[in-house]
Write a protein that binds this DNA or RNA. Structure first.
Lengths: 247, 247
DNA sequence: ATCCATTTGTCCGTATGTATG
DNA sequence: TCATACATACGGACAAATGGA
């Protein structure tokens, strides 16, 4: 659908660019023939690179669990489709992935209380330095990490949020405990960057992988913002969708 | 807001990772003090890297036009905020950027007719191999490239689309000529990857830059899909937003 | 059972890019 | 600017495994 060129000598290693391209080529089927990747020599010719370089790319993909090479037989594809995550007014993690994965799991990675800085305070309508609850939650679908989210809540309004969350393992249920029976997403903004730091291991990504970054504001039906969040999605495993009629 | 770590030996050169981080740091203000970037030694300490490496990163950003280093004075920031592009039912390029840029420009890069493959044919309800009009359009705001879109239309329904577009320079106006006075976006899916090939020069990006990829389906009010598009946005210049009430 | 083409795996050496001090 | 260490990329040669003729 787009170009064939690979850019050399500048920041991103050839093998990594090729790995990205192969991952895409597997997804849209252009580089795969019945469950098998095209041979290394073919790929090398297509990308205008040395076979060794292609091998490095394949080794990285093997590390990620995308493919598995077998001597004398070829390189077999292990995982293919991308999960769709819908961005809408009623965005909820687990219900969002229903039908796409058999098993959907949320794990609390970290919970603590920090002080609100200016930008948080303004959006949430609290004072500068007021307590702010921060939760880090890992989302998995069928044993594969698909998201890593940080959520922020007003620490005074939601006292002991962590303990309620620990019991229910659901943000929606915990909010209900505080009298919020319904909420909607005021805004989501999306951008992308390289994954870095601890999220690499949390999401099981190879260094240099790209993550989608979705920042969201949730509000009650009377338009009071009560939650901010920043969620990272591995760009090769997840696509975000915006549909005509948000449920 | 997130980690400080930089990953070495991993496909993406340190200087490029640092350049990406500095670009972000400029956008959110965390690495800039009144129009100036923090000194190289400070940055080197923050990233746990050598000053030479930070200098390489800054040189790349200078090449991109993001900053300008002046001997003895510091490194000055030339461009800063990210443009917000709203994804909604009524997504139109130029009206979308109103208020964010003084000058919004669309340039036709290429127009041709190809044959529909299976996936295009199915969504557009045309037959396999039927003519498909393809337009490549560059979007600029205040002299800066912000998007590079490929649009596909049914070649039989929209005969001579290119020439009408050339006159009006507007897809909305051209569609009106074919009796489509209104249309909405059925779906947008978003993912991200490294920019590659000719879009690098079209968008004025450094190799290795990340682009958001938005694939969209537009339909008439009676739910007939008539247009597919794939738009690339430089992730460091644009954020995509989804709002509560799509206009 | 043997040969052959295909395909991945391993080893050598060399040149250039990246990162540090 | 220099020196050093390691990562990246290339080229060639050959070994090892596979499956079909």
């Amino acid at each position: 659908m787009r170009e064939n060129t690979i850019e050399r000598g500048s920041g991103v290693a050839l093998w990594r660019q090729i790995a990205d391209r192969i991952r895409l080529g597997i997804a849209d089927g252009s580089l795969a023939v019945d469950g098998k990747l095209l041979p290394e020599t073919r790929l090398a010719a297509m990308f205008g690179a040395n076979r060794h370089t292609v091998r490095s790319a394949i080794a990285a993909l093997e590390q990620e669990g995308v493919v598995q090479a077998k001597q004398g037989r070829g390189t077999f594809i292990r995982r293919t489709r991308r999960i769709s995550y819908a961005l809408g007014s009623r965005t909820r993690f687990s219900s969002n992935l229903e039908g796409q994965a058999k098993e959907v799991l949320s794990t609390l990675l970290k919970a603590d209380t920090i002080k609100a800085d200016a930008s948080f305070a303004e959006v949430l309508g609290i004072s500068l330095g007021a307590p702010l609850i921060r939760l880090d939650i890992l989302g998995q679908a069928d044993g594969q990490s698909v998201s890593c989210a940080t959520h922020w809540f007003d620490g005074e309004r939601f006292k002991d949020f962590e303990s309620h969350y620990a019991q229910t393992r659901s943000i929606t249920a915990t909010l209900r405990h505080y009298g919020i029976s319904d909420y909607v997403r005021r805004q989501t903004s999306v951008t992308a960057r390289h994954a870095e730091g601890e999220v690499l291991s949390q999401l099981g990504l190879a260094p240099g992988a790209i993550v989608l970054v979705a920042k969201a504001i949730n509000e009650t039906p009377d338009s009071i913002a009560f939650q901010l969040s920043e969620t990272l999605f591995p760009a090769d495993r997840v696509e975000l969708t915006v549909n005509r009629y948000p449920k």
